[in-house]
Design a binder for these strands. Sequence first.
DNA 1: TTGAAAGCGCTAACAG
DNA 2: CTGTTAGCGCTTTCAA
Lengths: 338, 338
Amino acid sequence: MQTIKDVAALAGVSDRTVSRVVNGEPNISAKTRARVEEAIARLNYIPNLAARMVRTNRSGVIGLITDVVATTPNSVDIIRGVQDRVSRANLSLLIANTSGAAGEEARIWRTFQEHRIDGVLFATMYHHAITFDPATHNMPTVLLNCFAAGRDDVPAILPDDYQGSHAATCHLIAQGHTRIAYVTLNPLILAAELRGAAFVDAMGQAGLPIRPDWIRPGIVGAVGEEVMCAYDAARDLLARPAEDRPTALLTGNDEIAMQCLFAAASLNLHVPDDIAVIGFDDFRIISEQVVPPLTTMALPYYEIGMRAADKLFAILAGTDDQPTIERLACPLVERRTV
Amino acid sequence: MQTIKDVAALAGVSDRTVSRVVNGEPNISAKTRARVEEAIARLNYIPNLAARMVRTNRSGVIGLITDVVATTPNSVDIIRGVQDRVSRANLSLLIANTSGAAGEEARIWRTFQEHRIDGVLFATMYHHAITFDPATHNMPTVLLNCFAAGRDDVPAILPDDYQGSHAATCHLIAQGHTRIAYVTLNPLILAAELRGAAFVDAMGQAGLPIRPDWIRPGIVGAVGEEVMCAYDAARDLLARPAEDRPTALLTGNDEIAMQCLFAAASLNLHVPDDIAVIGFDDFRIISEQVVPPLTTMALPYYEIGMRAADKLFAILAGTDDQPTIERLACPLVERRTV
DNA sequence: TTGAAAGCGCTAACAG
DNA sequence: CTGTTAGCGCTTTCAA
């Protein structure tokens, strides 16, 4: 592999001069620069980042820690968002997965330190609180899709579940629905709480009644071993005479919405004429391909990735002037079920 | 940040000795080692990988290039497989995404070279041929889910679409089905070709007839702008009297299978009693949550990631004795639709 | 505008 | 078993 000295020799200059050209420093005569650049091209010289780093003590590498990515497929969009932003900044991305194991996580932090990472992005695949003490790692960190329990000094980018659910409910109401039932997420998780509160608030603000028997869990069980029961819940809600039936189903997420669609089909109910259904998350593999295609609130995963990387850079540059914790809106994606 | 010299000074040994301890080299007295380790712990010393690399010329970093991950959610499992194997080998993973853009890809290879990556894993999210000339990059590379068009000297790990589709057909036949229709993938893609051929072969081997009007595309259109038509295809196949109807639907993938399930529900047909359905891919967000849960052939994404990393390490170590191109079996996942 | 010397943190090569 | 010397490829510092 060619080194800076090979280039210097070929160009007939000192290695320091080559370094200047490579790093785009000023105060180089055009002629010298041209000669150096030609030598670089001819030798196909590629700078050795590690050597540079030993000197400068800045790695140009960002670390991304994820927990169990696998379970929620679309959360890859977080990674994509991060990648796009990181590559735009001409940095590199080191990535590692905890698989949920605590020992593994410690190992990862250590590896990142060995690499003298500039900063880290810590992403979870469910929106939830984590125990996180920045002091133990001592690296600029931004949390994605999670936040540090009991403290407000750790930068985090979160989806705005409340806003999304509120908007979904309002959308249904705006379409003229007054008889709205809610098939919920697992009540154990944070998003369920946030989304549920928004539903209650939006209904109240519209002066609409909430029937307790029209709020049904679509998923139950401990986190990690949930079981779906949305199909049965929806059948139960829908297998009644029209006048005793909701006209719209707000759902906890797209999987639940999908099961509601199956329930409607099994009852020969037409969507959206007999019953409207609105999802949440916009898992496109479901929402786009279910019959009919699902109207849903999108989780802004890609934007979370982008914005988090953005924020990290701002923090590193000392120019971050946004709130420590930012919530990104969930946009409505209109398809055919409302 | 503490350096090896700080540790050496505190332990009262030379820096070389500290280096030996850190790297687990032999020929150190237990006493010295203990002293050094104590100093390391006391100073919270963390080796500087970049400095090490400048000397050893090995980075301990593997690069992973992906194309559009987002579109096929479960393909994250490829990344997980790679990660798990890479971390087991105590290496790090640098990851980059081409977003499909050629310029971007060139940039990524260059970045990898700047990092003096030990080897690269190149993963695509659809099984297809790519144009790839190892000579242009000059880094040990293993292809995942794709292969170099027109050459057989580039290591690759692929899913065995033929085997999977053959097994799926045989499974249906073994359950007693003789009237099997096929709702296919977009005929433009490679997997469709492979899976289609296997269906034809398996039926032939069982002496079963193939009705041309029972082979229907479930997806059509140019790659990237496909439109689903599986619902209509399935309705058409199933909206006939029982004696003129298939008893089983082999499908190109889980999304197609899902639409078939919707079609069956809309026709008040019971799955699997009236009509059996088998999917392909095992996108669990669909296959586990559809009603009823889907029997399907799993794409071995996680294993592809694992095995590819494994193969790359073997190649780097000069011990790879497997075929250049390996095909991994697609296992049957039995749920409730057959 | 350019170059010489020094040194970043580490390990290879050798000596003891 | 341990230490010394040199040097990896680059940038910093300072002088020319």
